[in-house]
Design a binder for these strands. Structure first.
Length: 939
RNA sequence: GCUCGGGUGGUGGAAUUGGUAGACACGUUGGACUUAAAAUCCAAUGACUAUUGCAGUCGUGCGGGUUCAAGUCCCGCCCCGAGUACCA
């Protein structure tokens, strides 16, 4: 029996590919290009488990397939190597994060290369390498030096804005800026001091410093972006998060909200991702309405999606955090209101979510004036109004909004019916149809559509409100109080941030003794001795030299984790470039990513931010496309199957699964899955050696065996359910692992790992190898193949090709198995069949295919071979078994020549029916023959 | 609550988009080879009724509908998963 020596084969070809640089790709080719990209990994200390490579296997199969198809394929890989774990390890051990990162990357590369991926490592990027992050810093500066022009709907240089200010101030400027931006004339602008001018410019810059409410996580000692906060706790570690006002770097992503939304229509991304981004951007259409405050000069503006219910407003509610609250609160209420505000501010976000159902609030003692009726409406504050959404102020319409209704009922505020014939005493009516207005002045008798338009035009004519589109999307915080991230290339002059000229980049991370925040609570970079900027010599110098004239303190924050990943895909096109982040020539050759594969967990993080940066770079004509990835696939998670033993409470007895008594209580304890056989039998001796708690335990067996329970859950070290790919490679080989992961199910679906099933795929590869041998002797023959053998080949080519084109990898693998079984039955050993079949297989099982290709007498690597084509001629059948149904129920099959016409088939069926029992004497009403030749007879 | 997915054998999953449901694989059972085991090979395997015959009936979460024909389309439910949530 010929042996499938995968260990030998795989190490041989791994070496061959490395030595020959088989997958290095040139930017200079007449071939059409194809760019297939994986989301690059964060190199964690734990190494890879079998779930990680799933997406890489799929992308590698596509990359190899496209090479066969004659494309010049860019299939790069790199590492997103800035991040929290390396830093926390550094805090614990004092080991420099760069050191651990380097080790982890080396381990990752080993593991990846073992799986036979055809990456072009010559283009590798590492976000933590100065050669890479100098360009991240450069893009940061570009954002700093641009503003968003709403008239042109694109980013423009801040210089242009300054020119306009010099001439006419900001009267004619229609730009995306902070809400509190004052208006000024050109004359006034020129009278401003440098510092005053800079403060105003910050309100326009696309990356800016501002005093805003941020998500502060004391446990992590840093602020977090909205997508890093899940259910009120930090995504990493699950620590509580508070709202806190801090001066922070932010990105003006809101300027791009509409374009980020519109762009979704032009890209082939999974529905869930698009849906999540849509919700995250949260566009809602409505109006802003101004209310005057009784006895005050200021006004309060509300955003509402239902301006048509304005006449139903009976009160106003403000978010407690708003500055205006304290200004308008009357003396007698001041203490009570202040206490309420403090209470809300001290709440963790988690608690605020939990308390959501409880209605609370305070009356401020002040009133607004209804813009239409001039009635006085009381101003309340309540934590159900969020400062971050809209204007942080709500007009309370109990008739049209259920929360307002609950609030009104709770505090005994009036409820006014405004929908004719609908009683809103008990419950709000939220439908936008099925009524005409009443008690609504000029709207009375109108329906929703007309009333809605009418009220807006009235408000606009009275200058009391206007149509407004609100976005839920917030500008995102772009700074972390951490060490292991890109330094922000900014120094401070008179407390004003000033950019370092990009020609002096990279601004390299300074050495520090301690990776913790300083005693004064400054970020870790505050520990650096050398962290001041000399504006004369353009370099970093000792902090002690700061003189405020030519040497200034540098920014202590670093960039968040998503900075590097927001543009890295452009870098691969020209990874060695020292002059620019990528040349126009390279970018124009490789264009956008044709296929991007990665996890859905990045839907509202990386996948949104990167689209934002791409659009910005597009505005500056630095990249040729404003969407960087045409097609996205989210690979599903591979889940682990944990093994569980059951300990009876208050005892040291472990009970086998099927002996559990439902009346008793048991502790479920996860144990290492390596101790458990595929039939769920536990190796008790190994368990006893594993942890002391099991050493003297008693095990209650069934049929002499201990059977464990199983649970499917996320693969994780702490659950002892991790399957290591190295182990699978040792036992079955990388080719088997690749094929099996693809065979497991649709690529985008979550599925549990089940090592038991792997033998099916492994057996297939063994059988495939055996097709080339007879009685252990190589017997590939040059004799021409038979018609039926050719049919198998061409069917397989067709099936595998169409399946690959629609990324259905699991059905591809099945097709190979079917072909192999059929050819084995036919004793097929024709070169004419086996050669193309080997090429077909090579994206899936590259090592074995190379080996066989060489044995077939070829010098060239199989990866350079053209992809086989199928011809319909070989697929054509002369006759086919047709199902004949009576009233839709299948009764028998009839062999019919394909050349027959519909009429001839009808004749044939009719003649056959004379002898048939099925008509049972009934008259035939109809015979149906459709183009795919299904015959149904209606009696 | 809202928005998206999705319910097919013992299991993972196929089904050319309305055309022979359950491909392929795992598992299970039986057999061959072995002193034995492993490995390998062969056969059976949706359920039920017949199995001395042919075969028949029911079957894609539940209930209805359209159609010669429904896993696939329409209407109404039930369940599971994901995302999101005082979003005004």
């Amino acid at each position: 029996m010929v042996q499938y020596d995968f260990i030998h084969i795989e190490s041989k070809w791994k070496k061959y590919w490395e030595e020959n640089r088989s997958f290095q790709v040139s930017n200079d080719s007449k071939k059409p290009k194809y760019y297939v990209l994986d989301m690059f990994p964060y190199p964690s200390g734990a190494g890879l488990h079998v779930g990680h490579p799933l997406g890489y296997i799929a992308s590698d199969i596509i990359a190899r397939y496209k090479r066969h198809k004659g494309f010049n394929v860019l299939h790069p890989q790199g590492f997103d190597s800035f991040g929290l774990p390396a830093e926390q390890y550094a805090i614990q051990t004092g080991q420099h994060p760069a050191q651990t990162t380097k080790q982890n990357i080396a381990r990752y590369k080993d593991q990846l290369n073992r799986l036979g991926f055809s990456f072009d490592w010559s283009r590798e990027v590492q976000t933590s390498s100065p050669k890479f992050y100098q360009w991240t810093q450069c893009i940061f500066l570009l954002l700093f030096n641009h503003y968003y022009d709403l008239d042109q709907d694109k980013a423009r240089p801040i210089k242009h804005l300054i020119d306009c200010f010099n001439r006419d101030g900001n009267k004619n400027i229609n730009a995306h800026c902070d809400e509190d931006t004052p208006s000024f004339s050109g004359q006034k602008w020129n009278l401003f001091s440098w510092k005053e001018q800079q403060e105003i410019l910050l309100k326009y810059r696309l990356t800016y410093l501002s005093n805003t409410e941020v998500n502060w996580c004391p446990e992590l000692g840093t602020v977090l972006a909205n997508d890093e906060v899940i259910d009120g706790v930090s995504e990493r570690g699950g620590y509580p998060v508070f709202q806190k006002k801090m001066s922070q770097w932010s990105m003006r992503i809101t300027a791009y909200a509409q374009r980020l939304l519109d762009g979704l229509n032009n890209i082939d991304w999974p529905k869930p991702v698009k849906e999540m981004q849509k919700n995250w951007i949260g566009r809602s259409q409505g109006a802003k309405i101004q209310f005057e405050i009784h006895g005050h000069k200021q006004k309060i503006e509300v955003f509402t999606t239902r301006p048509d219910t304005l006449y139903g407003a009976t009160f106003m509610t403000l978010a407690p955090e708003l500055d205006i609250v304290k200004q308008i609160t009357t003396k007698d209420r001041y203490e009570d209101v202040s206490r309420y505000i403090e209470n809300v501010a001290g709440q963790k976000m988690v608690d605020r979510l939990v308390n959501a159902k409880r209605i609370s609030g305070r009356f401020t003692g002040s009133f607004v004036i209804h813009p239409m009726t001039n009635k006085r409406l009381p101003i309340w504050i309540s934590d159900y109004v969020l400062a971050q959404y809209g204007t942080g102020a709500v007009m309370g319409v109990p008739a049209g909004d259920q929360r307002d209704h609950l609030f009104a009922s709770h505090f005994n505020l009036p409820i006014v019916d405004i929908f004719n014939g609908i009683d809103t005493c008990v419950e709000a009516y939220v439908e936008k149809k099925g009524f005409v207005y009443k008690n609504s002045g000029p709207l009375n008798g109108l329906d929703f559509e007309t009333g809605y338009k009418e009220i807006i035009s009235i408000l606009e004519s009275k200058n009391k409100g206007s149509r407004y589109v609100n976005f839920r999307l917030k500008d995102t915080v772009f700074a972390r109080q951490r060490y292991w991230g890109e330094p922000i290339p900014i120094f401070y002059k008179q407390d004003i941030p000033v950019p370092i000229d990009s020609k002096y980049l990279p601004l390299v991370l300074p050495e520090v003794e301690q990776y913790l925040p300083t005693k004064e609570g400054k970020p870790p970079l505050g520990n650096a001795k050398n962290w001041a900027w000399d504006t004369k010599r353009h370099r970093v110098v000792d902090n002690n030299l700061i003189d405020g004239k030519s040497i200034f303190p540098l920014e202590l924050n670093t960039m968040p984790g998503w900075a590097g990943s927001s543009w890295y895909f452009n870098r691969y096109t020209d990874a060695g470039n020292n002059q620019e982040f990528a040349s126009q020539k390279a970018l124009n050759y490789w264009r956008e990513v044709d296929l991007y594969i990665g996890g859905i967990e990045h839907a509202t993080g990386h996948l949104l931010y990167s689209r934002f940066w791409q659009k910005f770079l597009f505005d500056l004509s630095l990249v040729p496309f404003d969407e960087y990835a045409k097609k996205l696939i989210n690979q599903g998670m591979i889940l682990g199957t944990s093994a569980i033993v059951y300990r009876k409470k208050h005892t040291q007895r472990y009970i086998s699964k099927n002996l559990l008594n439902p009346k008793h209580k048991y502790h479920s304890i996860r144990v290492e899955i390596d101790f458990v056989s595929s039939s769920d039998q536990l190796d008790i001796n190994q368990l006893k050696k594993w942890q002391p708690q099991f050493k003297d335990a008693e095990f209650i067996l069934e049929d002499g065996r201990y059977i464990v329970g199983r649970e499917v859950e996320k693969m994780s070290k702490s659950k002892f359910n991790v399957v290591n790919p190295d182990q699978i490679c040792d036992q079955y080989g990388a080719d088997t692992l690749r094929m099996y992961e693809m065979f497991l199910g649709p690529i985008d679906q979550a599925k549990p790992w089940n090592t038991a099933g792997i033998t099916g795929v492994h057996n297939f590869l063994k059988k495939f190898l055996r097709l080339f041998y007879h009685k252990d002797r190589w017997t590939v023959s040059d004799v021409l193949a038979s018609r039926s053998e050719l049919k198998v080949l061409h069917q397989t080519i067709k099936k595998v090709t169409t399946d690959l084109e629609r990324y259905s990898f699991n059905t591809c693998v099945s097709s190979f198995m079917i072909a192999c079984n059929e050819l084995t039955d036919m004793n097929c050993n024709h070169r004419e069949i086996l050669e193309p079949l080997t090429i077909l297989l090579s994206p899936f099982a590259p090592h074995l295919s190379e080996e066989l290709w060489q044995k077939l007498g070829h010098q060239e690597s199989i990866s350079t071979q053209p992809y086989p084509k199928y011809s319909e001629e070989h697929l054509v059948e002369t006759t086919k078994q047709y199902p004949i149904s009576f009233n839709g129920k299948k009764r028998f099959t009839l062999e019919i020549a394909l050349s027959l016409t519909k009429d001839e088939i009808e004749q044939l069926v009719l003649s056959d029916l004379r002898t048939s029992q099925y008509t049972k004497g009934k008259a035939i009403k109809k015979i149906i023959v459709v183009s795919n030749r299904i015959v149904n007879i209606v009696v």
